[in-house]
Write a protein that binds this DNA or RNA. Structure first.
Length: 578
RNA sequence: GCCCGAGUAGCUCAGUGGAAGAUCGCCUGCUUGGUAAGCAGGAAGUCGCGGGUCCGAUCCCCGCCUCGGGCUCCA
């Protein structure tokens, strides 16, 4: 965000606070910063805000802005500041936490003075009165800590011109239209049923078709990259999770154990301990490494009810997981392999822009500082060698090791965390896994955890929003829909469907007692890539008239030509339709 | 989990302290139509669940559930 916009938004948050104080003179003030998409301010108020309140506050803000109010900065001593904000306990807390020697300043505009280091606009003259809007009120804990009192946060947004505001509001509308929950319902991709339980996904046939296409591609890409696929059960003895340290470090996300014949079993939140048991089935040689075991493993994690969100945040999900056992010498080159496979898979699925983060050692962790250091520098060096720009996320690693997280950017530029690549010295240690080296001695290998799509549920949610439901042909739930012009062509259409299905193409006949135009509209709404219209002319000449969901009409073509075209588009996993 | 808001037909959504509505979809009949909605008829609702107030509650009150927007956390 540029400096000008930042000043504008931050100044508006002060104007908003003034308006709120006029309405609620006893309001206690939290903080009120400018943010990525606007600004907010937190207040402790005597009652809950209503939408009408927001309206009134916004009107009052417009009145204030039009008054050409000056923003005046003043520096003061800690004692003066404490005195000035003696009735504002949250501000006092902030003052007391300012480090010794820090300049303390306030900004006064009109009747409102706030503890603030600035900067601000010179005067509200610089704020266009028609380019800001209050968006919503919600709850927010003081300082983001749920042990603290909950304040009411008012969000607003502001721009340098009405045009930009309108564009932003239009973008919000666009986001709403792409919402995977809405599209998932309209297109019958998935279903979340109260009676099944929150955060537990039912994949409807059309969503399942997309998933199968993804899984098929995923398997072939992994096969080429030297992976082997494995399967493991959904529950395991609680002791396994104690050995792995998950019970100690990850318990808050795990479900309560269930007792089976006097033994405690636990629903799996991760796949790794299973793969380690497979490794330990027998003695392993360095000649077998790197050992790459992949599993579409379904895990269950407890998530607080308030964080669940469609497919993006659920309680049961399938990771495209893999665990790779390497010797220390193989670590870096294997990380490069993973990154390459990852970028290839993401690109094929339509994503070519990313935000990459390197997450370092968290406070609560296992393992030696030395190992953490080694692992972190390996990740760093690989990112640098592959020329991928990244940011450091300090303290955000997993308890057993540092990680690279990749957020993919969709068509609207929104970032979604999917890929995670983690280095782990802990589990090999905890499970005492070894390999016999060239020297005949036992050594401890390093384990890599990685999920590229992340979870199929979230990845699917991102895909739905990215493509707005109009999936590339290779993923599309229905790839071709046969539309007879009259009933007389139904038999021919049935035969074409059978022939296409023989080729593995998801083709369907629309034999509803409706007119062709209606069937085209239905296919358009369902975003079916190819609508094959068949009238007397086509049926008589072994042809189909090909209409694309882009509304483009390719006209009649020999059925054999269409088959060749769709075969090629699918095999190339092309984003195009012809 | 917490704060705020919402829950009416399969979907989207009107509505009312006194007989529950529309559109699309679904079913039936007619229509056989050449690139985005043919005509007619019909079925469909425990008005989220439980309790309370009231002669009477889908509507008012209380509790719960689910969903949405946030806070916090994550694939």
């Amino acid at each position: 965000m540029d400096e000008k916009l930042l000043k504008l938004r931050h100044s508006l948050s002060h104007v908003m606070a003034e308006a709120v104080l006029k309405k609620f003179p006893d309001a206690l003030l939290g903080i009120g910063p400018a943010i990525e998409e606007g600004f907010y301010y937190d207040f402790l108020l005597p009652r809950a805000l209503t939408p009408e309140d927001l309206n009134e506050i916004e009107q009052e803000m417009r009145r204030i802005v039009k008054g050409n109010i000056k923003f005046v900065r003043k520096e003061l001593s800690r004692a003066e500041a404490r005195k000035a904000f003696k009735n504002q306990k949250f501000k006092l807390e902030l003052i007391d936490e300012l480090p010794e020697g820090e300049t303390i300043s306030t900004y006064t505009s009109d009747t409102f003075t706030d503890l603030c280091k600035g900067p601000h606009v010179e005067s509200t003259k610089e704020i266009p009165a028609n380019a800001f809007k209050l968006l919503e009120a919600s709850g927010a804990y003081w300082r983001g800590d749920e042990k603290n009192p909950q304040l009411q946060r008012i969000y607003g947004t502001a721009f340098s011109s009405k045009n930009e505001l309108d564009e932003y509001l239009k973008r919000l509308e666009e986001i709403k239209e792409r919402d995977h929950r809405k599209l998932g319902k309209d297109l019958e991709l998935f279903h979340l049923s109260d009676e099944i339980g929150a955060g537990l996904v039912l994949w409807m046939p059309k969503g399942a078709a997309v998933r199968m296409a993804l899984e098929e591609y995923w398997k072939s890409a992994h096969f080429k990259a030297g992976y082997q696929v494995v399967y493991s059960p959904h529950i395991a003895k609680l002791d396994l999770w104690k050995t792995s340290h998950h019970w100690e470090f990850y318990r808050e996300n795990m479900y309560s154990p269930m007792e089976i014949e006097g033994q405690d079993y636990e629903l799996k939140p991760m796949n790794c301990p299973f793969h380690l048991q497979m490794y330990k089935m027998r003695k392993r040689s360095y000649r077998e490494l790197p050992l790459r075991w992949a599993e579409l493993g379904t895990v269950y994690r407890f998530e607080r009810s308030g964080v669940l969100h469609g497919l993006m945040r659920v309680r049961g999900f399938t990771q495209d997981d893999a665990h790779i056992i390497v010797t220390p010498e193989q670590l870096e080159s294997e990380l490069v392999n993973i990154l390459n496979l990852n970028l290839e898979i993401l690109r094929t699925c339509g994503f070519s822009e990313y935000d990459i983060y390197l997450s370092t050692m968290p406070d609560h962790h296992v393992g030696t500082y030395e190992n953490w250091e080694k692992a972190t520098s390996a990740l760093k060096s690989v990112l640098e060698k592959t020329n991928l720009p990244y940011k450091i996320d300090p303290g955000e690693g997993v308890f057993y090791g540092p990680k690279i997280d990749i957020k993919i950017k969709d068509t609207l530029g929104r970032a979604w965390q999917c890929t995670t690549i983690q280095v782990d010295f802990n589990l090999p240690e905890a499970f005492h896994i070894t390999y016999v080296g060239e020297d005949g001695q036992e050594h401890q290998p390093i384990m890599l955890h990685r999920a590229l799509m992340g979870s199929l549920e979230r990845f699917f949610g991102v895909l739905i929003e990215h493509y707005k439901g109009a999936f590339p042909v290779w993923m599309a739930p229905v790839q071709a829909r046969l539309i007879p012009v009259t009933d007389k062509q139904t038999e021919y259409c049935r035969r074409v469907v059978a022939e296409l299905r023989d080729m593995g193409i998801r083709a369907e006949l629309d034999d509803a007692p409706e007119r062709m135009q209606k069937k085209i509209m239905t296919a358009q709404h369902e975003k079916v890539p190819y609508q094959l219209v068949v009238g007397e002319r086509e049926a008589g000449q072994e042809q189909v008239a090909v209409r694309l969901r882009t509304n483009e009409d390719l006209g009649p073509m020999p059925l054999a030509d269409f088959k060749r075209m769709i075969r090629r588009i699918i095999d190339e996993r092309s984003a195009s339709l012809k």
